[in-house]
Structure formats: C-alpha cells, structure tokens
Computed example of a mutant assay.
Amino acid sequence: MRATFLGTGGAVPTTVRAPSAVLVNRDGERLLFDCGEGTQRQMMRYGTGFGISHLFVTHLHGDHILGIPGLIQTLDFNERDDPLAIHGPPGSKRHLEELVRAGGYQPSFHVSVHETRPGNVAYRGDDYEVRAFETEHRTSSVGYALVEDDRPGRFNRERAEELGVPVGPEFSKLHDGESVELEDGTVVEPEQVVGDPRPGRKLVYTGDTRPLDSTAEIAESADLLIHDATFTDDESGRAAKTGHATAREAARVARDAGVRKLALTHISARYAAHPDPLLAQASDVFDGDVFVAEDGQTVEIPFSDADD
C-alpha cells in the first residue's frame, strides 16, 4: 500500500502546493481522498493513473471538491466504463451530484454519491473497510480511516510436520482455519500450527479539523496518520477560529494514538515553501517518524511485521 500526496496546500493554492488530494494505491485498487482543483493534472504529473474506484470527500469547502468536475470529465474523455462511487459527509449528496454534472454535463459512466456519518463504514472492500470518523471544522465534515482486516498468523511448518501433516493442500487448509484429519484418524486443529492473527495496515486521513480525541481513538497504532497541520504555534488562535490544527496539536494526536508515522498536511500558504517551523514544533512532541508532506511525495506503507 502506498499514499501519493497530490495536493498538500491550504485553502489558497501556491506554486509549490496544490489543494488537498491524496491517492492511496492498495494492492492495485486506487482510492482518492479529497479532490481539490487541478487534481487530474496532479495525477498525470505524478503518474498515479486515473483508475480510481472510490472518492472520499471530507467536507465541501472548495479546496477539497473543486477538482471533481474536471476529474469526472477527464475520466469520461478517457472512455471510462467502470462506475465511480463518491462518499461525503452528512448533507453533501445534492451538492456533490451538482458538481458531477457541473455545467449540465452528464457523464457516460455511472457515478453514485453516498453520504456517510461518523462511526459508519463508508465502504467495505474484500479484506478492508473505510470508516468515517468525527472531525471538527466549520461545516459538516468527516475523516476517513482505511483499516485492513487481520491477517492469519504465521504458519509453523516445522510443527505441522512434527504432528504428521503431509506437505501439500492440508497446509493451506490449516492456514485458512480448517482442521485436518490424518490417515490415522488424528485431527490437527489450526491453532496447533498457526500463530495469533496479525494486524493489517491502517491509514487515517483527517481532512480539515481541530485536534480531537476521536481522531486519536481511531488512529490507535495506525501505520500512517495524515493530519491537518495548517499553522504553527503563533497562529494557534487562528487555527481554533478557522477549525484547523497546528503542527504541535497534530503531533499530540499522533503521540496519544501511538502511530508509526505522521504526515503534516494542509499547509498554509505562509509556510508553503518553508515548512521547517511546522516540522520542528511537531518533532518537539512526537518522537516517531514525522514529516511535512510535499506534492508528489509517495509513502510506502508496509505491514508492521514486515521485518520479522
């Protein structure tokens, strides 16, 4: 799984940071989180491809949605046939449908729009789900957590052979949770040769928000937390007034959640080209892997036990 930051800027785009958009490629399935203006150009520029299956919108401010009409029409020009599902916060359905059909345009492929509430599963995939969670901005908003199912524990081949399990299909059955009967009538249970379930990966994207306990709760032990970090400490009052977080506040959420990696994003134009103060203030609080996301940056998200 990898995340590509297509836009990392705040409400005002700059020459170095486009408005909000993050594309997640999970085993070949592409999911887009927010779609600021020009997102389709960023997708071309950074080579992510257009084959997204779902678009998850955190809220309806322009820097998160104005790329939707252009993206829809670009997909159509590329002769797309596959359907596209768009998910948004409560009260967003009519407005998102209007964006899809901006200027009277009617896409030739099916586009469905769905509202989701905090605590609900916005989308269930084959072995993962995208959950909506509470955020606090100046409008109806949600964040999204991509949470993979637990994986089977490691298979102990040596122990299986000791128990007399023949090499072959029986190994797979045991690993899949099925018991196996041997020729002498002995039954070998999966728990005898398979370790404890291993966690899947977790990616959490807040969109624009104040720092909340709900974010720390859903981001517990996340592999990557992408958090609003619009301002530094000296603009903390403005952050509170406008429904954003400072880098230090984002770092506190990451620390409390025990995440492996923190990405600071939605960077105000005042720090667009010089974000070092944001990184410094976040690093004061969170001693894990923290970075200020840059447009075009791709982050690989391995399993937590990949090095075991």
Score class of each variant (00 low, 15 high):
T206K: 05
Q281N: 06
T58H: 10
A3T: 00
P277D: 08
A11Q: 09
V167A: 14
E300T: 08
L96D: 03
N156C: 10
G258W: 05
A272Q: 08
S221K: 11
Q42H: 10
P19A: 06
Q192C: 07
G164I: 01
P197L: 14
V204N: 00
A280T: 00
V194D: 08
G177W: 06
D76S: 14
A250T: 01
S236L: 11
P152V: 06
F303L: 06
G88M: 03
G185C: 12
L163K: 04
A240C: 07
D289S: 13
A273F: 13
I72W: 13
I68W: 10
D81H: 13
G49I: 04
G195V: 04
L203S: 12
D287T: 09
Y123A: 04
F286Y: 04
D276Y: 11
L99W: 14
T232E: 01
P69R: 09
L32Y: 14
G67C: 07
A257R: 07
S140A: 15
T215G: 15
S108P: 06
S20W: 12
L262D: 01
V100W: 10
P169V: 11
D127K: 02
E249A: 14
A85K: 07
S283Y: 00
E161A: 15
G237M: 03
Q192I: 00
Q297A: 13
Y123K: 02
T15Y: 08
G36L: 05
D81I: 02
P107F: 15
A18S: 10
V113A: 13
L264W: 08
S92D: 02
P13C: 14
S108F: 14
V187P: 08
I52L: 13
E161L: 15
D284W: 01
L146H: 11
R131Y: 04
P190V: 03
V24K: 01
A269Q: 07
Y128R: 03
G70D: 06
E79Y: 15
G7N: 03
D287K: 15
N78F: 15
L264D: 02
V193G: 11
V253E: 00
G119D: 08
V285D: 02
F133M: 02
H59E: 08
